Amino acid sequence: MLILLPPSEGKAASGSGKPLDLDALSLPALRTAREQALAALVGLCSGDAVQAAEVLGLSPGLAGETARNAALRTAPALPAAKLYTGVLYDNLGLADLPPAARTRARRTLLIFSGLWGALRIDDRVPPYRCAMGVRLPGVGLLSAHWREPMAQALPEAAGRGLVLDLRSSMYTPAWTPRGDVAARTATVRVLHERNGARTVVSHFNKATKGRLVRDLLADGGTPRDPAELASALRDLKYTVETQAPARAGRPWQLDVVVTEL
């Protein structure tokens, strides 16, 4: 099983180890594209800070992030498992997973990133600020920048197993599962049911997905397709409804229905 996660805007304030080593990161097929994005971001943020903030879409309160980006090559790095601190990751709780679940997390989780493409949880990178929707000088829109290298790296990472795609909409254009991989892919929509009516949730969507991933890792099951995943989640006491794709070569959608947020 391969589980695709979005990053989070919330990140650790600083690293505490050696600087970035691009050659040490997983998914080596992304190496060249990572260097291109990194060089463009460092170059942008080493120049006019106002222009850099505009390109990155930073509010005045985040203007200091440009200086952080300018120093990415020499800044202390830390594992991706410790870098991301948003709602999904708070509820996933990578730091206190049982040992066996932690081993499964290393093997199954991929965190998408505008700057790095995708990371395993033990990949060491410095804190940064660069979303997938940014257009970097000389590189262009990052979601388009990643499509070709992702098309090479991701099917190999997925192998012949299930893909659970929990990315937010900003990150899905960087890689679209196709063919037999799409047939083994499930997306998740979280619905809040109250007084017989259902609404799509936002903040609690992330919290539910974090808990869901944690429960799957702790359970240790190995669902092989979306139908088996739905069954596994029901065994874990989730209310799940499946929606088969309208045509072949498209992912399944699983609706997870919650009554309490």
Rank of each mutant, 00 (worst) to 15 (best):
A13L: 12
G57R: 06
E65F: 09
V42L: 08
L62P: 07
L254V: 13
K82W: 04
L166H: 06
T176C: 14
L30I: 05
A248Y: 02
R250W: 07
E193C: 11
R198D: 08
T187K: 13
S202R: 11
L83W: 01
R120H: 11
L92P: 00
G117P: 11
T185I: 01
P155K: 06
L136Y: 08
S8V: 08
P223R: 03
S26L: 01
L25K: 11
R102D: 05
L191C: 10
L236A: 02
T103S: 15
R68W: 08
L217K: 00
E193P: 03
A100V: 03
V200E: 08
D123C: 06
S46Q: 15
A157C: 00
V256R: 06
W252M: 09
G196N: 05
Q36W: 00
A75H: 01
T66H: 05
D90I: 01
E65G: 08
L217W: 00
G210Y: 04
L136G: 07
L2I: 13
D48E: 11
A12S: 14
Q51W: 04
R234K: 14
L136E: 07
R124I: 03
V181T: 12
R167H: 07
A144G: 12
L136Q: 01
K209F: 02
L25P: 13
K11M: 10
D23G: 15
S143K: 10
D180T: 14
Q36A: 15
R178G: 13
R214M: 09
L56A: 02
T74K: 12
A95W: 01
A67Y: 04
Q36P: 04
E241G: 08
E35Q: 15
T239R: 14
L88F: 12
D165V: 00
R189K: 15
R224D: 03
L115R: 06
G117S: 12
A63R: 08
P251M: 13
